[in-house]
């Protein structure tokens, strides 16, 4: 299907506001901790594509998820990762890009044994 528009050239005039080059060298990356809906949605970050995956885990995740009582209990060796719908084992020293994280990619992770406050998935 395509757009129904008065202007036959409509599709050629579309201005996509979320193009990678509009983010000053960063790309948008979404992160979501499964079974912890205290955080109402996936979190969005503008990150350099060359940033190591390990920096995301060590610096960003504790800053934004650390207040949850489950966070300190995470066994990182057991975490299951999914990037854009594909289960994967990210290499921590490699960059986001080399781990397959692109512009507007979503990284979801599951922490086995931890399913939120009183097992409520919150």
């Amino acid at each position: 299907m395509s757009v129904v528009a008065l202007d036959k050239q409509y599709a050629d005039k579309v201005e996509i506001r979320d193009r990678l080059e509009n983010f000053h060298g960063n790309q948008v990356v979404y992160v979501h901790w499964e079974d912890h809906l205290m955080f109402c949605a996936a979190l969005a970050f503008p990150l350099p594509p060359g940033m190591p995956f390990g920096a995301l885990v060590k610096e960003i995740l504790p800053t934004y998820y650390g207040m949850h009582p489950d966070f300190a209990k995470i066994d990182w060796s057991k975490v299951r990762w999914m990037i854009d719908g594909i289960e994967t084992s990210p290499r921590l020293e490699a960059s986001l890009q080399d781990n397959g994280v692109g512009h507007k990619s979503i990284i979801r992770f599951w922490t086995p044994g931890l399913d939120g406050y009183k097992h409520s998935r919150s």
Binding site: A5, Y10, R17, D18, F23
Partner: peptide
């Protein structure tokens, strides 16, 4: 209508 919604002005972005 992807032509239309791909133009969205999303506040976070």
């Amino acid at each position: 209508e992807p032509e239309k919604y791909s133009q969205a002005w999303l506040p976070v972005h």
